[in-house]
Every structure is written in structure tokens, then in C-alpha cells.
Design a binder for these strands. Structure first.
Lengths: 176, 176
DNA sequence: CCTTACATGTAACAAGTTACATGATTAG
DNA sequence: CTAATCATGTAACTTGTTACATGTAAGG
């Protein structure tokens, strides 16, 4: 259900094609949701079938037609219903924590590799956040009302990542 | 793959039935992994089929037979391979962040309900962590080598939850 | 009497991944 | 010449959820 809701949200802001949505998932929505192009195309088609989206086919010379989706009143109603119901608890799935359950069983160099790889991923995430911040929220003083809440999500993302990094540094220091 | 790895880890520590594993997912492994009983039974059967687990059927009077699974050498090899390969980045899926993208569109009381519900969930999670800590790591000074890494995962879980809570309090304060 | 614990499963569905497939245009 | 961008899709598979199904024993 959540992918569907995210699609409704982004298409409500601005209609677009499956490809457009994929680009949004890679840039401004990168810290919110990710999905493969196959998942997006499939879901958009299902939503059109369910009457939540309209689809206008725009022919293009020498390229596949663009299928521009936009939200319908039924789609907006479905979105409102989703917004009105508080989210349930999310499932816990932490493969790294699982690895830590037999941490002493590993060769030391495998541990180092794991931690180094994690560190890179966390730093890459911070950089991605910084890019979003620069593009969308460069001046926190001048945020519009509509920008304020999305900006908070970005800040939380940053803070969670920093919590991870601090913890990682402690672990690495202890392992020496 | 990760569910499979978690099952290998827990059955390597101690053989058990699907039901046993489910109980572990509810207690000592609660902050690591969750899965429904159907998912567990299905996966255990597949793993037995793939030669990763042995299954010994223990008849019981007046109750369904217990199927006790234990890890095979092939299972241990698969686990070692999983441990040796650093984890890839995990997918980003934050439905709450999506809601925040149209936060100003909601009625104020719906927002309050959402935040209150989140707060309850976070507090419940902290309590679950405290229970695990009490049962498994009551004396941090006296941790065995094997307990040390799992204890670190618990601490990270707590710290992440606290980061969420601090953020939540800021948002709630600002909303007044 | 009702709920919880014990102990297993089938079936259908929803969500997400990976591989394969097409074909023009533009930038290096 | 090669890679990236634009733009769409099919098919097969894995993973996770929900509903249905069975039956005993113990505790309140």
C-alpha cells in the first residue's frame, strides 16, 4: 500500500510518467522511497485500472509514447484515507544485527571489511542528503509552509545516519 | 536471503522447531528480525529441501509432532559465505516521510494523532529493548566475548529510537 | 467457559527483485 | 565507438502478508 500512497503524493504535486517518477525517487524523494522501474510501471497501470489515476498518452516522434499519469478524485480520496489512518509499526529487519550475533565467529579481516563497507554507505547517504538539502532547502530561514515538513524528514534522516556513524566509530575503536 | 541467514544463525546456536524460532523472534531477536509463522515454516522446509538443515521428527502424545531442525555442514558453509560478503545498502522506505510531503494538507487533529501514535510505538520499542537488556545483558561489565557484539546492536537500537524521539518532540513543540 | 500456549500447515495474494527486450538520441 | 538518457514493457522468481484450518491441554 505504501508505494501506492507515495505515487499518489508525487503525482498529486505534479503529473508525470513512470520514468519521471523514477527520477524523483532518485533525487528529491531519495530518502523517502525507492522502487525499481518495473515496480513503478506495474503499479501505475494497476492504479489506472482501479480508477485512481488518469493516463494521457502523448505521442512523440521517434520515441515511445509518454504516458502521463495524473491523480483522479478517487485517487485523492484514497490518499486522504491513507493520510487519516496512523501508520502501523514497521517490521524490524536488521541483517547487520544478525551478523553481530555471531560476530566472534568471523575472521577479523571480514569484520573490518564489513564495518568499512558500512561506513562508506553511511557517508554516501550523508552526501546524498547534502545534495537534496542544497537543491531544495538551501535557506532554512526562508522555507515555505509546504517545505517545512519535508525539511524535517531530511533532518531526521541526517540525524539517524549520524547516530549510526557515532556507534560505528565506537565499535571500530573497540575492535583495535 | 536474509531470513534464511537469520534462521541459520539461530539454529546454529541451538536447534529447534519453527515454533521455537518464532518465539525467539518475539523475544531475544525482537530487535533483529521478525517474520510470521507461515514464512518461517515455509522457509525451513525449503532449506531442508536444499540440504542446509536436518529435520528430526519427534512424536508427541496428543500433540502435533515436533520437527526439530538443526544446521548441516552445507548450511554452515552457506552461512559463512553470507557472513563473508559485506551487506549491500538497504532499501529506503519511509512511509512517514511520505506523509510529511503533504503535511500541510491534513487536518490538524489527524497530524496530532499520527505523532501521538508514533510516540507510543517508539516508547513501546524502548520498553521491548529494556526487557531484552534485562534478560540478556543485565550486567554490562560481565559480558562474555560472545555477548558483546549482540549487546552493541541493542545499544544502537536504543540510540536510534532516542534520536527519533528527540526529533518527534521538536516537531510536536513546533506544532503548538 | 474462554483464552493462551503448543505445534503444524495450505492457499491466495501483495510487494519487490532480476533478467531479458527494444530502439532512437546525445555527449564524450 | 561507447555509454548514458529517454521511455516502455514482459516474465519468472523471491519475499512477505492475510485468511483459513486443526486439535489438545492448562490456567483463570
Amino acid at each position: 500500500m505504501s508505494l501506492r500512497a507515495v505515487l499518489l503524493i508525487t503525482l498529486q504535486r505534479e503529473p508525470g510518467t513512470g520514468y519521471d517518477v523514477l527520477q524523483r525517487f532518485k533525487t528529491g524523494l531519495a530518502h523517502v522511497w525507492q522502487a525499481s522501474h518495473q515496480q513503478i510501471y506495474r503499479e501505475l497501470d494497476k492504479m489506472r485500472g482501479a480508477g485512481l489515476l488518469d493516463c494521457e498518452t502523448v505521442p512523440q516522434a521517434e520515441r515511445p509514447d509518454r504516458k502521463v499519469y495524473s491523480i483522479t478524485p478517487a485517487g485523492r480520496a484514497e490518499l486522504d484515507a491513507w493520510l487519516a489512518a496512523p501508520l502501523g509499526p514497521s517490521a524490524v529487519r536488521q541483517p547487520l544485527f544478525a551478523k553481530f550475533f555471531i560476530w566472534e565467529d568471523w575472521p577479523a579481516e571480514a569484520r573490518q571489511r564489513e564495518l568499512a563497507s558500512l561506513r562508506e554507505q553511511l557517508n554516501a547517504r550523508l552526501q546524498a542528503y547534502a545534495a537534496i538539502e542544497k537543491e531544495w532547502f538551501s535557506d532554512p530561514q526562508a522555507l515555505t509552509a509546504a517545505q517545512r515538513a519535508p525539511w524535517h524528514t531530511l533532518r531526521l534522516g541526517q540525524q539517524l545516519t549520524e547516530t549510526w556513524l557515532t556507534w560505528l566509530e565506537e565499535i571500530q575503536a573497540e575492535g583495535e
